[in-house]
């Protein structure tokens, strides 16, 4: 009696497994790899339904680090990329992995620090800021995780003609996400480089009165350019290049550009559309 019961349960399980697996079919879809910032800010959640409504294509995306996004494209696992690493992207296209790189929009980074501003960097240029921080050995908190933001920070040190102060005591590498890094910067009363989106969230979390304030912004060097790249069908014959082109045209088009400009995070504009 007991055994029969057991067998019956097993049978039901197997039948259910068959049912589940058969219910898996694919509509017209487009697979995109993008960076965490577009996903975390909610921009894609806002754009994707609009795209589907306009074109009938279901947009799926996986949000990963820039490096991994490019790698997924190389391996033909995605059809289109939305990333922000201009130098790497240009090389990527040159190597034949991607085609039709188009600049879509940018957001910007800001340098923040304690309102007391011991290094007196407020309103200064990025160059001047980094020099002053290093000279005074003021605490500087870095992501230290090879993320896009970390790479941006490293290139800023380089552009300023300084070495990244890897070994210095004032240079704190967290190895964590942006929000966690901000929390640490707050505790250490240090300066840090952050994307504006995370800062807006941080500001909101602090009830509009954050301990860390924006001190440097608007410098061209702080611009974070996003581009769309279609995967090269020569490299990946099975890629859904048609849909990828539709997406690229759509996001660079007038309608989507306006929507990007209208997108607000906590009532603040985050991305500035700049498709040509």
């Amino acid at each position: 009696m007991n055994r029969n019961f057991f067998v019956r349960v097993l049978l039901i399980c197997l039948l259910a497994a068959g049912f589940f697996s058969s219910a898996y079919s694919e509509p017209q879809t487009l697979m995109m790899a993008t960076t965490t910032s577009t996903d975390n800010t909610g921009l894609l959640d806002y754009l994707a339904p609009l795209f589907t409504k306009d074109t009938g294509i279901d947009l799926k995306w996986t949000a990963v680090g820039t490096g991994k996004a490019l790698e997924l494209g190389k391996n033909c696992d995605v059809d289109v990329l939305l990333v922000h690493a201009p130098d790497a992207e240009k090389q990527y296209v040159a190597e034949g992995f991607g085609v039709n790189r188009r600049e879509i929009m940018y957001n910007d980074f800001v340098i923040i620090g304690p309102s007391a501003d011991p290094a007196a960097i407020k309103g200064k240029s990025v160059l001047e800021t980094l020099k002053r921080v290093q000279k005074g050995a003021h605490p500087f908190v870095s992501r230290g995780d090879n993320s896009g933001t970390h790479k941006m920070e490293q290139s800023l040190w380089k552009l300023s003609g300084l070495n990244t102060p890897e070994k210095e005591n004032f240079y704190i590498q967290t190895g964590q996400g942006m929000m966690a890094t901000l929390t640490i910067a707050e505790e250490k009363k240090g300066y840090t480089l952050t994307d504006r989106g995370t800062y807006i969230k941080y500001e909101d979390k602090m009830g509009g009165n954050p301990q860390l304030k924006i001190l440097v912004e608007g410098d061209d060097m702080l611009k974070n350019q996003y581009s769309v790249i279609e995967i090269n069908p020569v490299n990946c014959p099975k890629t859904r290049s048609e849909q990828a082109k539709v997406f690229a045209n759509w996001i660079a088009g007038e309608k989507a550009q306006k929507w990007i400009g209208d997108f607000k995070l906590l009532n603040k504009q985050l991305f500035i559309p700049n498709a040509k």
Binding site: K60, W61, Y202
Partner: peptide, 20 residues
């Protein structure tokens, strides 16, 4: 971690944590 498709509870937790 594709929304509506392969986002499970644990990947969603990782995502939300990353977003702060």
């Amino acid at each position: 971690n594709i929304k509506w498709h392969t986002r499970t509870i644990t990947t969603a937790i990782a995502l939300e944590t990353g977003k702060g």
